[in-house]
Each structure stands twice: as structure tokens, then as C-alpha cells.
Design a protein around this nucleic acid. Structure first.
Lengths: 278, 278
DNA sequence: GTTCCGCATGAATCGATAG
DNA sequence: ACTATCGATTCATGCGGAA
């Protein structure tokens, strides 16, 4: 079978099966938020925590095959509480995935500013997640200037205010909302960010449970790809990563197994395409 | 040999050797920042990353013995870059320490707002560290109300400024400066924090350079102990944890191997004791 | 007393140079 | 080839002196 990429499409199918149809060394960036280990999950087939690594390793093996040598893999994960303590499946995953050849280049922290409220006797609200950065080589593409941020308290305050009303309609085809806003302060000094990134979660409206804010993939896409590059999200859900990719003038490939999410993603993508006149 | 605790003293000696002299189940909280692998080589014998777990496990075993059943262990650590990627010794440590019976209850993120600057082709500044929370049981003491924070930016600013110049003279024996300050905002709304804590590191203010800011142990001491409880830091350095403990009207035990740091800690403690008239 | 501005200084990391 | 040392890079913060 000839292996080829279907660009700017959401594929409704099993992640592993579909990945096998992709050619080698063809993707610039994989950014994805795999379903967390949880037996009880309804929408995805729940993966038990103790089976999680075993379940994921064949997938990361395919990731390794299809990713370009200078590409990056971003895994957004967080271990949940199992039986009163943090489960170790994410740690196990890091250790095992390295044996496939992956380099654990960095661990970014996504600080969820408005984490889900709640109160428990022995812990506080969980307001952070890991964004694990793996590469195939020590040298890889990184466009740091694309994510520079305005400096200073005045800027911070303005930023916060701007972020509050994250108005998608202000986004253009060639520049993300973030980029445009930053451009407004072009006269001001900008600095490189650190490995802690602060984004609010998206209020879970829509018909989709994931609280994956578009700004998260947006940030990594700007950081690790240039225009025209190919971005893969193999657990694309209702299409957030794909939307961010398209808005940034990159090409997306999305895989989603769940029919309901697939349809939702397809609809949102088509709406955006119409808007961008693609 | 009869095992007993020497309260409110800094011990100049080897951590493991000194711990063996402590009685079982006698410490309420251990909060410590062990030397990271291959760091601070000037002051300590550097521990190679691949030997780190092996070096630490006997110590954590003693921690387990001396900690009360409802106590907590807070380990402040961060793996550094070795050969272009994050080393896994902290992950290995978590996995191994659990085999001693420790429960990995939570992982707090310390966001260091003023991380060391620098620019590299493949990563940003490292501005976070792990504060691993281990317990002996699923039920343990946690005084969440002690760390409630006033809401709003104005409060944060005031807090920071007050803490910055660390004015011992304003502290009373029975009430920490923090506590008194918080009391001033009694009319304001207070909220529980999350598992991401934001403190700046302290640069060399007086004649010592603090490894971590006093607010960090201060926060955990308030969270996991009540007045009169015993707090241990077995790598106490120049005494930051001990000072925080004393100001909060708890009892400290500090162990420090390096003579220079030991003397510095002792001097600072004595100064504080004089101020507090203990 | 307050505010403002300059300056030193970090639990860092990379790449080049030297032995 | 492998290790050790050193310079360059860069930013939030507290401190001290000045207005």
C-alpha cells in the first residue's frame, strides 16, 4: 500500500491504524492530548492506569516513525489520583518512551489559571498539567521569536485583560489572535517566555468535554513550526488543534475515533475554512 | 543508645548519621531541598545523576521512620539537563521511594518567577521546580485554612513587598509576620490556593544567599503543622527553613553538613531568637 | 515618608576551547 | 574521542541611593 498524507482532513478512525498509513519522516510537529487513564470514561474506551503505558507505546512508536528528524512531539498529560495518590503512569511512560529513541528534551508546565474549583481534605485544586517535549534528535527546529511576550507589569495587566475575552472572530488567517495582540505592542520590549506557560482553560461549553484551550496548541505550533508545515493531532477531539493549525497557516492532520467528536470537529473546520476562504 | 530529639538546634553533621539518632514517629513535617545531582559542587560532594537515587534512598528510609504517621514529607527537587535532555533521576526517585511505603500524595509546582536568565537554541529558561509531597498514610494533617490567600492583585503586591525586606522586628513570638499581615485583611475575601505556588527566588540580600525563599518552607509549614509541632530540614543550608519554623512558633531541627553554612545558620538563628526573646 | 531608577545577582545551559 | 573549564546569553527582583 502506498503511504500518503491526507492534508487538512479529520480522519475518523483508530489512531494506531491510521498512523500506519502515513509515510516516514513526514510530520513537523505532533501535539496531542491523549485520553487520560481512566476506567470509567464513557466517550473514549477507558484505558486502565496500569495498562496505560502498554497501550500508548505502539502509538509513540508510530509517532517516532512519521515525525521528521528535526520535528517535535508534545504530549499534554497529567496523572490523576488513583486510590488516594498520584498514579505513576506518566512517569513510567517517560521512562519507557525513551527506550524507543525519544529524547526527553523538556517538560513544560501548563499552569491552568482557572482550574476546576473544588475542595478536598488532603489536596488543593489541580491547576497544572505536563506538556512533555520529546524529540528525535538534540537539534531540532524551534522558532523562539514567534512566542516572545511583552514585558513589564503594565503589559501583564493589559495582557490579562485582553485574554479574558478571547474573541475568535478577531483572528486572521495568517496570524493567531495572540500574535496580533502582541503585535499591537510592537514598540515595547518583548522577552522570551520560560517553560511555564499560563493559559486559562476553556469553559466546558460546546458539546465536548476536553478543556484544551486553543492557545495551548497555538503556542506550540508557533514555537515549533513555520508556515506550511504539517501538524498532527491523533486525538483531536472536537478539533481544537486543527483549528489552531489552520489559523496559523499550517497544515493539519487530525485523527479522532469517536464519531460524535469527529463530526463536531469536521463542522468546526468547515466553518473556519469558509471564513478563511480556503 | 537512647534516641532523643534536640529541639531548636542546628546539627553540624552528616544527614544519615544524625537521623539515626532520632526516635521513631517523632517529626510532624520534613521539608527539605536536597542538593541536586552535580550542583553546588563547591560546597558539597557532588552526587552524580546516575548515583542519585542510590544515595537518597537510605535517607528517605530514615525519614519514613522518624516521621509521625500523620506527618508529611516535602521534597523540593528539579532534574537538570544532562547531555541535552532532562535526566530522569527524579522520576526514578519517585518510583523507588514508593517501594519504601511512601504514598505520592501530590506534586506541587513551585513557579520561580525570576528564574535564571539565558537563551539557548533548544529550550527556554527553567522556571519551575517540583515540590513532591509524600505521606505515610492516606489520612494526614493538613490545615488548609492557614494558607488561604487574599484575592486580588493589590494584596499580592503588598504581601510581596512586606516579605521582601523580611523585617524581623515586626514579628512577634506568637504570630508570624505573615499571620499578622493576613489578619489585616480580615475583611477581604480569601480563597484556597492551588497546587501551583508562585514565589520569587531570593537573591543574595544580606551576607548569605538563600537557596530557596523563606516563603516556600513557610507555606508548607503553615499548611501541614500547627503551633508547637516539630519541623525537620536535613539539608538546612544557611537555615532558611529553621528561621521560618521559629517565626511560626513551631520547633525546628536542622541538619547541615557544610561547616560554613552551619555557622551561618547558627548565627541567623541566634539573632532571631534574640529578637523573639526565646 | 514615597517613588523611581540603576545595578548586581542568581540550584542554568550551550558551545567553543583546552588538556 | 572524552572530560574540564570558560564565556556568552538573558530577566525578575531586591537593594541602595537619589529626587
Amino acid at each position: 500500500m502506498k503511504k500518503e498524507l491526507r492534508i487538512n482532513k479529520i480522519i475518523n478512525g483508530d489512531c494506531l491504524k491510521e498512523l500506519k498509513k502515513f509515510p516516514d519522516d513526514s510530520i513537523n510537529l505532533i501535539v496531542t492530548s491523549p485520553p487520560y487513564a481512566d476506567r470509567r470514561k464513557k466517550d473514549y474506551d477507558g484505558v486502565a492506569p496500569e495498562k496505560y503505558v502498554e497501550w500508548f507505546l505502539p502509538i509513540s512508536q508510530e509517532f517516532y516513525r512519521v515525525l521528521k528528524p528535526n520535528g517535535s512531539l508534545i504530549l499534554n498529560m497529567k496523572e490523576n489520583i488513583v486510590n488516594g495518590e498520584r498514579h505513576t503512569y506518566v512517569l513510567d511512560l517517560i521512562l519507557e518512551i525513551k527506550k524507543q529513541g525519544w529524547i526527553w528534551t523538556e517538560e513544560y508546565i501548563w499552569h491552568k489559571k482557572n482550574a476546576f474549583p473544588g475542595k478536598w481534605p488532603n489536596r488543593f485544586r489541580d491547576s497544572w498539567e505536563r506538556c512533555l517535549h520529546f524529540t528525535k534528535n538534540k537539534k531540532f527546529k524551534m522558532y523562539q521569536d514567534n512566542v516572545k511576550e511583552p514585558i513589564g507589569d503594565w503589559a501583564k495587566k493589559r495582557l490579562q485583560k485582553k485574554y479574558a475575552n478571547d474573541d475568535i472572530r478577531t483572528m486572521s488567517k495568517t496570524q493567531s489572535g495572540f500574535g496580533r495582540r502582541v503585535a499591537n505592542w510592537s514598540g515595547k520590549r518583548k522577552v522570551y517566555p520560560s517553560n511555564v506557560i499560563h493559559f486559562a482553560t476553556v469553559s466546558s461549553n460546546k458539546n465536548h468535554s476536553a478543556v484544551f484551550p486553543e492557545r495551548l496548541p497555538d503556542w506550540f505550533i508557533r514555537l515549533f513550526t513555520k508556515k506550511g508545515d504539517i501538524v498532527l493531532d491523533s486525538f483531536v477531539g472536537s478539533g481544537t488543534t486543527a483549528l489552531a493549525t489552520l489559523k496559523l497557516d499550517r497544515k493539519f492532520i487530525g485523527i479522532e475515533r469517536n464519531k460524535k467528536y469527529y463530526l463536531s470537529a469536521k463542522r468546526r473546520i468547515n466553518m473556519l475554512k469558509k471564513e478563511l476562504k480556503i
